[in-house]
Write a protein that binds this DNA or RNA. Sequence first.
DNA 1: TATAGTGTGTTAAAATGATAACAATATTTG
DNA 2: CAAATATTGTTATCATTTTAACACACTATA
Lengths: 215, 215
Amino acid sequence: MSRRNAPKSVVKRLPVYLRILDSLIRRDVEIISSRVLSEETGFTAEQIRKDLAYFGAFGTRGTGYNTSYLREKLLRIIGLDRQTKIIVVGFGHLGKALTRYNVSKNPYVDIIGVFDINPEELHTDIPDLKIHSMEMLPEVILADQVKVAMITVPADVAQSVVDLLVDNGVTAILNFAPTKINVPEHVYVHNADLTIELQSLIYYSLEDEKQPEPE
Amino acid sequence: MSRRNAPKSVVKRLPVYLRILDSLIRRDVEIISSRVLSEETGFTAEQIRKDLAYFGAFGTRGTGYNTSYLREKLLRIIGLDRQTKIIVVGFGHLGKALTRYNVSKNPYVDIIGVFDINPEELHTDIPDLKIHSMEMLPEVILADQVKVAMITVPADVAQSVVDLLVDNGVTAILNFAPTKINVPEHVYVHNADLTIELQSLIYYSLEDEKQPEPE
DNA sequence: TATAGTGTGTTAAAATGATAACAATATTTG
DNA sequence: CAAATATTGTTATCATTTTAACACACTATA
């Protein structure tokens, strides 16, 4: 089960498959075909089969996929077979919303702490959540061997926060700050810049051709 | 200046260029080369030139791009030359965070209203923001000819909300609900499922090869 | 006003990703 | 138990996207 050579586009679809499987298992569905999976996910059946083929052969020809078995395999492939420890840096409104959302809806991750420059001014109703000052960052990361971080800090401090994270062993960052950040080769950054998503969406809201310019 | 044939991947980079140009103009930089733009954005210079070429020729050979001129062109291409009217459906923590963020940081859009099933229980410190009940949706959309919506509602009601939006003329939807939604051909949906982003990130946090299974 | 230098725009090649076709294998049915 | 049906896994084809190459245009300078 090699993980190395799967395209990014494939990896981004795996959690979608996982979610559908979770839902099917809750409904006591035991066998599922790629065609039905296709209807549930919106991806084509061919694409689903090819995506899974990057990691192995998990189905039975003529029958389909066992939902529980495929789920187990996907969990292992994605790396969710053990709960992943995560930190959130920046506990403004977005950081708070993301934290709350994942604590309640994402059983595969464990947000072990959040960080902010002035933790004493903040409070939260999220149970068991610790709000740390930035000075505590290295200590907490090292203690729990945290590899994954979400950052929702202002653009002008994003790079310094990222440097701090990387220095202490973080290898994957979900960046909500509206700025490009530089990291070493071995660190993976995914930019989730919501302003940019919204702006590129506006492009598609304008139907058909623009008028040629008056010049 | 045709807009029809530009790939999605290109369209998603345009707002990044725009942001960098805004920043350059604030610093009184008047001319910029694709190479310097490359350093600022993280995309290659070749890619930037090719991206722009989908829409026209905006630079001067031997010199570079005039920042203000290119900004104007990009605004027009993306459709940000007039402020875009937007609504947000679902005013939970995520909806609130997104609304606040765009009101304060995204001058190109105008969030004209937010909707929630129980608006009377909600309150906000965002100035000039109206919280409507869901019943008001058609009226508000039609009155302001709204084409763009963000939805942050629970998964189980997402499809019905989307149907309502589409029926009233919305043509572009930024979907934060963790579910697939079906829309007619002419409507564009961008899924911004933050759980999925996070889970696919975890894949990359595990360095190198997984152990082969004991089997 | 020719020449060297710089940097765009366009065309060509390579890489990546998606779609389609089909052979292999299981299940069901008469 | 043979034939028909269903569905995977794999290989081949096609489309898209990125990278590279280079001709063309402008600027500065002597």
